[in-house]
Nucleic acid binder design. Structure first.
Length: 356
DNA sequence: AATATTTGACCACG
DNA sequence: CGTGGTCAAATATT
């Protein structure tokens, strides 16, 4: 697929000069800014490559039980290490925010129309905005339902909702848009809306089916007849489109296998003092949502902690802390306007309390 | 056949 | 009225 070709490309062409011991970061004498930038660039690349490797490894090891779980765990740790490093670099930037000092690219600022300040949304829907090096899997299953060219941006915005939107009435949504600019690699702005209620709410309950054999819960796609989608009126005449089936990973059956893997990973995490977050990837692990090993001291309530000293956005409003898998996250930032602006302030993250 | 994506139209909000 | 978000028929892929 494309992952393979990209991986190959990175390994041969781009990668050759990038990471090679002395070739990649050789001109560090330019200044602290450049050095910092180079480090961030390389870390980002490493992070990306790790994710790809993880995807490939999991594909190759699928169904191999412990080997797969071990690979998942270790690569997740590696990925997490990159994330931590990037976070450190972000907070310790010599001048300003590392990936892009300011929002407007310095190149073509001649014809810059004043950005129309669109008012922030007034609804009470919790949102979380983040920047990611690439839009690959965040551990959840999403289904794209729309794409839109946004006003003064170069890249379209894609809209996704949880694949369990219907079956389990999961309200989670996100939209992803590549950020304008010369970011290498390209950075994507991801905005999450609502929390997952399909699995994330009670990941430990899924395996509950073990009591009765589990086949029933796994096999039947539980639906909720109550007040389904409103057919609304028959309006559109012709939608033009093309589409494709891209059998993502995950189905309900995988949940059972996954449970075993989680148990394994959990024990591994225990052994390792379980501080880090274990990140699932684009395999069927996603059916259980983000899985984290617990941070011993981070046993705070997970989602609804809007009362205490949480992150605060520019307007002084407290940001909701949602519990997402943030392995692929580079920088969190408050958001309030529709602009692509963000600051490099880091937000503390919380690990999901999976292990009881 | 089943299912996810594409894509123009529709719609609500500022 | 313009813009962003959503809908749903058409379409692509397996």
């Amino acid at each position: 697929m494309q992952a393979q070709s990209r991986l190959a490309a990175a390994a041969s062409g781009g990668g050759g000069s990038g990471i090679s011991g002395s070739g990649g970061i050789s001109r560090l004498s330019g200044g602290a800014g450049e050095e910092h930038e180079a480090v961030v660039r390389e870390l980002t690349r490493g992070h990306e490559l790790t994710a790809r490797l993880r995807a490939e490894a999991l594909r190759a090891l699928r169904g191999q039980g412990q080997a797969e779980a071990t690979a998942t765990f270790i690569l997740g740790e590696v990925s997490h290490a990159f994330t931590v490093c990037l976070s450190i670099m972000a907070s310790a930037s010599p001048s300003a925010s590392p990936p892009q000092p300011d929002e407007t690219p310095p190149a073509d600022s001649a014809v810059s129309p004043p950005p129309p300040p669109r008012a922030a949304r007034e609804d009470n829907v919790p949102r979380k905005r983040l920047l990611t090096a690439s839009p690959y899997d965040d551990g959840y299953q999403w289904r794209k339902y729309g794409q839109k060219k946004i006003n003064n941006t170069n890249f379209p915005r894609s809209y996704y909702r949880c694949s369990y939107h219907r079956e389990r009435r999961c309200p989670a949504q996100k939209h992803v848009q590549q950020r304008d600019g010369d970011d290498v690699p390209a950075l994507h702005v991801v905005v999450y809306t609502h929390e997952h209620t399909c699995l994330q709410g009670a990941p430990a309950e899924l395996p509950d089916a073990a009591t009765n054999g589990g086949a029933a819960a796994a096999a039947s796609p539980d639906y909720f007849p109550a007040g389904g989608e409103t057919p609304s009126s028959l309006r559109r005449l012709r939608g033009v489109g093309g589409g494709g089936l891209q059998p993502q990973f995950v189905d309900h059956r995988a949940a059972m296998e996954e449970r075993e893997r989680q148990v394994l990973v959990s024990s591994l995490a225990r052994v390792l003092q379980g501080r880090q977050c274990y990140d699932d990837d684009d395999t069927d692990v996603a059916s259980l949502g983000a899985v984290h090993a617990r941070a011993p001291a981070a046993a705070a309530p997970v989602a609804a902690s809007s009362s205490s000293s949480g992150p605060v956005d520019a307007a002084g409003e407290e940001l909701d802390v949602m519990d997402y898998d943030m392995t692929d996250t580079l920088f969190w930032g408050p958001f309030g306007t529709d602009s692509n602006s963000y600051d490099g302030n880091l937000t503390s993250t919380r690990c999901f309390d999976l292990i009881n």
